[in-house]
Amino acid sequence: MPIRLLVLLIILSVYNPARTLAQGGPPGSGDLEDLPITVLELDGSNLDFGQIIANSGLHIIDINSSKVLGITAVRFLDVLVEITAGDALLLNNDPSCNSDPTCRLPFTLDAAYANEGTNDPSAATPFTINGNTAIASFRIRQGGGNNIPPPAFRNPERFEDTAYVYIFGSITAGNVTGGIYTNTINVTVVHD
């Protein structure tokens, strides 16, 4: 009985059709996880709120003015995207301003993705937001009738597509010191 169990476990661990389709060869000859993912900043600019007068309240960058990333990979690949941001922009990015309301601008992160083949914010799906962390898992190309991996292919780039991630949000300008306020948003994309 233990031997049968072990044999079954070995078969299950070696045979994973989703992982072995990439090269079209025998099981174990190639993994989907080995296929490249490319993340590009499409608009080349940062998430810049521009000049804001102190004490002027809420300022919003909406999805139509958002920072856009393009994630290019094999179209049926599922990716997990995690976006994290600090909860405030800090004067001269000085960490001590985290506890000083006169030199921090509270920031609220928002994000969405579009995976229907076009860079179309109006068709975007919101990320799940928890605090200033946004998470979404999605297929590179949803729809289009090509969701099933081909049984074999040796040129994965022929099957590449691009999904779009939109990063936006808002800040609140209170009675703060004048100057340049910054922080960083980190985006991580992995196979899901």
Binding site: E33, I52, I53, K67, L89, A173, G179, I185, V187, T188
Partner: peptide, 18 residues
């Protein structure tokens, strides 16, 4: 390998004027 993904950093910025 699955968790060795792509990482991109984006700067958020604003200039506060009194």
């Amino acid at each position: 390998q699955q968790n060795t993904g792509q990482r991109v950093s984006v700067t958020i910025s604003a200039e506060i004027i009194s």
